[in-house]
Design a protein around this nucleic acid. Structure first.
Lengths: 247, 247
DNA sequence: GACTTTCTTATGTATATACATATTGACAGT
DNA sequence: ACTGTCAATATGTATATACATAAGAAAGTC
């Protein structure tokens, strides 16, 4: 993918834009390890000489590298290779409907239970730091074809999302309903493996104790909890993929 | 120190740069759902009027949004909200030693088995796309205190990493050994839940069939496979955390 | 109508310029 | 030796300008 930098001109100077070329060159030095973390990248004015261009062009390349987290820029000191080898992979969290349809199976959603209730001490850790007084609790099932694909257990804060009290969630799953309706600023996902308890086993139509992939998602807007969701997939049916590539 | 008065105005119009403000405004519209996917963002020249600034300033904001994947820019047509409904969360992949020590437990590494062998058809999917002819196969154990914490199964391509043939891996785990020694450009992680087979059960000192979290990692440098690693954690002992916050 | 050509338009890139701002290093004063 | 001041410097942001390029729209041609 990254090879073939020069496509048409054998000279290879005109194939991409100048700032892209500068960006690629520097990124290459970094990911190849030629410029180790902490290395001071040539100053902007040095690069302007090297590439015979204006500072703005160099600046554009370096700014993008900084935005991508590959380098750190310090006034008066210069730009430094950052990459402290922290392997951060990007995990795509897709909507369940999309997931199911990607498998070529028809998707179906079903609401099992809907309760509106006061919060219990138990909820505080799921809806932190400010546990709402009232919330909606849902149990849902997502089907892939005729087989249950995912069990969803969800809490929605009625203080942050008052509209949820007038929505039955019979026809629409809480995930898609919330998206777009509630701006959220932070999300945390906790992924673990658990053995199916009797409820999970019944919902997913698997044996009790069978391994399940559990994804817990908590979202906040500002500092207010929006929702807590717990998705349970039968172990054999599902896996998550996270990728890292230097953009 | 005590005087101030320029930063903290609740109005907060001057605290950041103009292009940052534009960027934040638009990103807010997108993540809040006010501008749905497919929506055409105001043209650059419209935004220059709205914010009373030059086109370059608007362009900088929009270019960054495009680089971040939030919008798509089309010549002559304008810029459109992209957001293909997939929330990307960042998954921190930490070294196992760090993980264990974060739990306040002493870490210990042990090599169970080391084999140098020719590749088998079986390996091709783990070390793709160009399966090396020779490789090192390792089975390792990572202890937290006296209890086994993680079972590691690893393949290292001897074509990409010839040095691995002269390393016994008795004292150092393959993960830390590889880091820094081999620059890698891409990594893929697959996370799933599995029931322990007899080998996993014996290694982790758990019952057969008990739920385990399995993380498979494949890394490449350029297009050459570097290593395949499979980490198995007892279900109760471990979870992964992925976070999303709009940068 | 199907096709080509030309025009228009929004974005893409590059430049020179200007001033702001943070930080370093040197120099001077106590 | 410590401290404060100040100039030098690299980055940060913003502007006006210029031309390139792609793609849609409109006009012209067969």
């Amino acid at each position: 993918m990254n090879d073939s930098a020069q496509i048409e001109t054998t000279d290879g100077e005109e194939s991409t834009s100048l700032y892209q070329r500068i960006l690629n060159d520097i990124r290459g030095k970094i990911v190849s390890g030629a410029w180790a973390p902490g290395y001071r990248i040539p100053f902007e004015h040095e690069l302007t000489v090297q590439y015979d261009c204006s500072r703005m062009t160099v600046n554009k390349a370096l700014s993008q590298l900084a935005a991508a987290g590959l380098i750190e820029r310090r006034r008066r000191s210069g730009s430094f290779v950052r990459s402290p080898r922290s392997q951060a992979a990007v995990l795509e969290i897709t909507d369940i409907r999309i997931e199911v349809e990607a498998l070529g199976l028809p998707y179906r959603y079903a609401l099992e239970q809907r309760r509106e209730r006061r919060s219990q001490p138990n909820d505080a850790e799921r809806l932190s730091p400010v546990c709402p007084k009232k919330l909606v609790e849902l149990n849902c099932l997502h089907y892939a074809g005729t087989r249950p694909f995912c069990v969803e257990h969800r809490l929605i804060s009625l203080e942050t999302v008052p509209d949820a009290s007038v929505e039955t969630f019979q026809e629409i799953a809480p995930g898609p309903w919330l998206i777009g309706r509630v701006p959220w600023s932070t999300a945390e996902h906790r992924i673990s493996a658990e053995g199916a308890d009797s409820l999970m086993a019944a919902g997913l139509d698997i044996d009790e104790g069978a391994p399940c992939l559990v994804i817990e998602r908590r979202t906040w807007t500002a500092d207010l909890p929006v929702t807590y969701a717990r998705f349970i997939y039968a172990g054999v049916s599902h896996s998550l993929v996270a990728r890292f590539e230097p953009s």
